[in-house]
Each structure stands twice: as structure tokens, then as C-alpha cells.
């Protein structure tokens, strides 16, 4: 549960908070990831003011209040506070609230907060923060490593060797995010970010060695706090009956929190250097993201050759 207190006090600097003018009601809940510029809501037209959204006052609200009489302000703001459950009001540009607003906020216990940011800047920052706070989240059994800047999620059943492959990748200079449990958050409409649950952050388990602190063993550059997930690789026991992708023409996807991420299934067999294959998969993904698709280019070349052959055979 997100309260006004936790949002604004934990992010004082990033939200440019100047002062908490009214601190009654700091335990009010924020239940929406959206904010609202109160605008006409202070003129008595409270109908379109959404309860549960952080309200923002800027130059226009203050200019309006300054040119209305105290009685009118009192009536309009009272209407707003009586009819809508507002978590708090944030005033931008380091402006000051009018006496009437301060009086009524005290009475209705609505926190008043000022920021030194401009309205646009403040809305940008708070929206990003709220998006993250309200982001859908899930846990996945897997190991997340950043390989050449590609966030690579290794999945597969317990004991298949996810951690061992991650360790080999870390040894080769790639960066570790989380082992065995990855918390995944959907931030914005298209991005999935993975990070480690706080308690196991930086730790990786290798059977026979136990729990290892990667940051202590490999240094600060070997870890990162979170990474966008761009490729899912499933490690599986080699099954001679299964048809593994031999060409790579058809891109496959894995669904997490309703988003599709490119997916590969890698069969394990003695003699296959999986860490190297995983590195190459990351390179291949980088190439695909830049529009270069090895399998497709190969296929086009083959088709062209076949056409040429058939033309030649006509003569």
C-alpha cells in the first residue's frame, strides 16, 4: 500500500520536495498511478476531479485563487474537499498556497506539499515513479544475467545448471542480476524489468559450494541491480525425439505478464559449451534488434540460388 508519506518522504530529492506545508493526513492512500492537474476543480466544478489521484496545483491554479475573493475560495475549495477524497495536493514552482487553502487543508486533513520543480518536470518524475510503484509484478524461477547488454533470462527445471552457466558467464565478464528467483516488473506498456529480491541480491548458489556473493568475488562491475529482459533461454535435457530448431527462421516467444519476449530452447548435451552458445545467442539477438537476421538472410540467399539454378536448367 502506497501512502502520501512513503511516496513523498522516500523520494524527497527526486521529486524536488521543498516543504510539507500541511502534514495532517500523510497516511492517506494513493491508489492510482495517475496524477491530475486540478484546474477547474478549484472553481467549484469538482465533478471531474478524480478521487485517489495526487492533485497538482501550478501557476494557473494559484493565479486563479489570487484573483478570487476569500469567500469564493472558501466555498469552492470546501466543495472540492467535501466531495472528493484527494490524497494530497502538490504545488509546483516553489509557489505558496493561499491562506484559505491552508486553513481548509488543515480542517480536512489533506497534506499540502511544495516542490521546486516546474509542473511539467514534476509530472514527468512522479508519473515514472508511480508507474513503477503500481507496476504488475511476478516471480519467475530462473537466473538473470546481462550478456553484452542483452538481459538474458535462463529458465529450466531445478538442477539443470542455470546457476553454473551464469557463473561461467560472470567469469567471462558478463553481469549478474539474480539467481533462482527473478522478480519481474512490467514498467510502461512494453518493458519487463528483472531484479533480485532484496534478501538474495548478489547471491548465487552453486551445488557443492553453497551460497556465493558475486559482488565480493568478482567486484562491482560483475553485478547490476536491474535489467530489461530481452531474451529467454530455456535449458532442457537433450531429447533425441524432440525437434530442436535447426534453422532459426521462426522466432519464438515466451509470455511474461502478458508480454512476449524472444525465446529459445537449448538442449544440453555433454561436449556442448552452453555458456558460449548463450553468448552467441545474445550476439544474435543484438543483431536481430538492429535488423540483421542471420537465418532470414541465409534463407534469402538460398532462395536466390535456387531460382538461379532453375533458370540455368531451363537452357
Amino acid at each position: 500500500m502506497l501512502t502520501v508519506k512513503s511516496l513523498f518522504l522516500d523520494n524527497r530529492d527526486s521529486l524536488g520536495i521543498n516543504s510539507i506545508v500541511e502534514n495532517r493526513g500523510l497516511d492517506r492512500k494513493i491508489e492510482s498511478h495517475r496524477t491530475q492537474k486540478t484546474a477547474l476543480g478549484i472553481t467549484g466544478l469538482y465533478l471531474y476531479v478524480h478521487s485517489n489521484r495526487v492533485q497538482i496545483f501550478g501557476n494557473s491554479e494559484i493565479a486563479y485563487l489570487n484573483q478570487t475573493s476569500k469567500t469564493e475560495q472558501f466555498l469552492n475549495i470546501t466543495k472540492l474537499f467535501q466531495n472528493r477524497t484527494i490524497p494530497c495536493i502538490v504545488l509546483t514552482h516553489n509557489l505558496s498556497f493561499s491562506e484559505v487553502v491552508e486553513e481548509l487543508a488543515k480542517q480536512y486533513q489533506i497534506p499540502l506539499i511544495t516542490t521546486s520543480f516546474t509542473t511539467e518536470h514534476f509530472i514527468d518524475v512522479i508519473t515514472e515513479l508511480l508507474f513503477e510503484k503500481f507496476a504488475p509484478e511476478t516471480n519467475i524461477h530462473g537466473t538473470l544475467v546481462d550478456v553484452y547488454g542483452i538481459g538474458l533470462l535462463l529458465i529450466g527445471k531445478s538442477g539443470i545448471g542455470k546457476s553454473e552457466i551464469a557463473l561461467e558467464l560472470i567469469k567471462r565478464g558478463h553481469r549478474f542480476v539474480s539467481d533462482d528467483v527473478v522478480k519481474i516488473r512490467k514498467i510502461g506498456p512494453v518493458n519487463l524489468y528483472g531484479f533480485a529480491p532484496e534478501i538474495i541480491k548478489h547471491y548465487l548458489e552453486i551445488r557443492g559450494l553453497g551460497v556465493l556473493n558475486i559482488k565480493d568475488l568478482f567486484g562491482i562491475v560483475s553485478v547490476r541491480n536491474r535489467k530489461k529482459i530481452e531474451l529467454v533461454i530455456e535449458l532442457a535435457d537433450w531429447d533425441p525425439k524432440e525437434n530442436y530448431d535447426r534453422i532459426g527462421l521462426d522466432d519464438q516467444f515466451y509470455t511474461v505478464l502478458e508480454l512476449s519476449i524472444p525465446y529459445l530452447k537449448l538442449p544440453l548435451r555433454q561436449g556442448r559449451d552452453i555458456a558460449t552458445i548463450v553468448e552467441i545467442a545474445a550476439r544474435n539477438q543484438l543483431a536481430k534488434q538492429q535488423g540483421v537476421h542471420s537465418a532470414k538472410t541465409f534463407h534469402e540467399r538460398l532462395i536466390a540460388q535456387i531460382e538461379e539454378n532453375s533458370l540455368n536448367s531451363e537452357f
Partner: peptide, 8 residues
């Protein structure tokens, strides 16, 4: 979490 995963 997966019951077979120590970190989990």
C-alpha cells in the same frame, strides 16, 4: 517460489 530452489 519453486520449492526445489534454495534461493527461492
Amino acid at each position: 517460489v519453486n520449492g526445489k530452489s534454495i534461493m527461492g
